[in-house]
């Protein structure tokens, strides 16, 4: 489970991410990052630390925080 999730995120990073992916240049403009660590790197780290289910939940929560009124902790 942990492995599958991490693998999927890796595929996203290698192919589709607008920061590092192979298809990066097709984006007309880069996706801005509100956090110091990118969401996909955060997801990889948190899944490793907290396990697949808790980690994925935290990663989704993190993506949900990508809005102007988020309070940085």
């Amino acid at each position: 489970m942990k492995f599958i999730f991490s693998f999927l995120i890796k595929i996203y990073q290698f192919l589709f991410s607008s920061h590092s992916g192979v298809f990066r240049n097709f984006y007309f403009f880069p996706i801005q990052c509100r956090f110091e660590e990118s969401c996909s790197n955060f997801a990889l780290r948190i899944i490793k630390e907290r396990g697949a289910i808790k980690g994925t939940a935290l990663a989704i929560k993190r993506i949900g925080q990508c809005h102007p009124f988020h309070i940085h902790k």
């Binding site: 984006y27 007309f28 403009f29 801005q32 509100r34 990508c66 809005h67």
Partner: peptide
Amino acid sequence: YKKHKVNPFGGCLFAIIQLPII
């Protein structure tokens, strides 16, 4: 944000609009 003229509204959601065009 205001002082440094950062527009807080450009986030990841805004960027998703380009995907259908690509």
